[in-house]
Design a binder for these strands. Structure first.
Lengths: 201, 201
DNA sequence: GATAAAGTATACGATATCGTGTACTTTATT
DNA sequence: AATAAAGTACACGATATCGTATACTTTATC
């Protein structure tokens, strides 16, 4: 690993920290360079502008979260058990400090401009794609009764995110405690399973 | 209505449009003044800074949305009927162009800084308070079975917002069509009602 | 230890925006 | 028509940030 690679890495780390702490627009190229112990000129040699740097940061942080994406519906396991697993996965994703910080940046940029939304959200929504496919497959296997996978997923994710994510991301409430989190997942899963069972009867 | 009041009104209208079109930070005092056909000096006489102006804009726009806040649980009417009504109310709120634009601004500012979140979100979350109280009262009356009002509200709102709001606010998807909207409300309400009924049996 | 690649320090020019100061003009009121 | 309040035009000074140019220094490699 040459000197250049080292600097490059330092820059990325500094950029992550700066972006997460101050958000995209409040972060200056100068402050990133400073934090990375790198001259501004070097920074600009590695990244021609802030946008490019943000893209790299988003990509990098998404990799950390990637393991959470995979979820496969298994017709041979009880629904409630799988729901619990899924719920815990969503919760883990959404309660991850990295995810919270990163998603704030992405959401702000996406809401600010449609162009940015297209560029960033594409990568970002991959996070949820795996989780959505579980519902699609469960529905295909007839495990959701007459409930459509779209509404099913919306109710399930929506509930968890409403309590465990948006309140933190927007209102800066403290992260859900262990006990509250468990209660949320339990109740959501049970309620959901009951609704499905009732629609199948 | 004196000349001053007229100008004041022009400023507010211009500020609403500018903020909604460009968001808080991309909007300059100059552009607001220009759009209001007012000199910058006059603008500063009415509002000492951008933040103050934003507060007024938020307050003003919230008043338009206020009617949507009131929802009262009625123990003598069927649950499903009330749920439908509630769902349509949420949908109407969330599909309102003013609400979409305003909420974008508020959310961006809230996510950007905890201080702003405290200042703005307080006013803003009133929107949902009335809707939340419905669930609290329904639960108190025993109409939700063993489902907690918090999780109930989260599932119900969460589902609708997930599909009818966040996709628009973040990913700039088109507003839900008449037909899709009706399907969403129907399915959500029925699913919810089934879950409640099953838990009461 | 010479050479080239990479990095640094520093100072630019170009913008953009903020909020204010000043002297002049319009409007309403008596 | 005189007076005062409100508004205007315009030009500041103060910052802040961008991205680049230039001349010097460090580091790796032969």
């Amino acid at each position: 690993m040459g000197r250049s690679d080292n600097k490059h890495n330092d820059i990325l780390c500094a950029a992550i920290r700066e972006f997460c702490e101050k958000g995209m627009m409040a972060t200056t190229m100068e402050s990133i360079a400073c934090r990375a112990n790198v001259s501004k000129r070097t920074l600009y040699k590695h990244y021609p502008c802030k946008e490019t740097l943000l893209d790299s940061v988003v990509t990098l942080l998404l990799e950390r979260i990637e393991p959470l994406q995979k979820s496969h519906y298994d017709p041979n396991r009880p629904l409630l058990e799988q729901l619990r697993e899924l719920g815990n996965k969503v919760l883990a994703l959404v309660c991850d400090e990295d995810y919270l910080r990163l998603s704030r940046i992405v959401i702000i940029e996406s809401m600010r401009s449609e162009r940015e939304a297209l560029r960033l959200n594409e990568k970002f929504s991959d996070c949820e794609r795996g989780l959505h496919s579980w519902f699609a497959n469960a529905a295909k296997a007839g495990a959701l009764g007459n409930l459509s996978p779209m509404v099913g997923a919306a109710m399930f994710y929506g509930a968890i995110k409403e309590v465990a994510y948006w309140d933190q991301a927007i209102s800066w409430k403290p992260m859900l405690g262990e006990k509250e989190a468990r209660a949320l997942i339990n109740e959501t899963c049970e309620c959901f399973a009951r609704a499905v069972a009732a629609s199948q009867a």
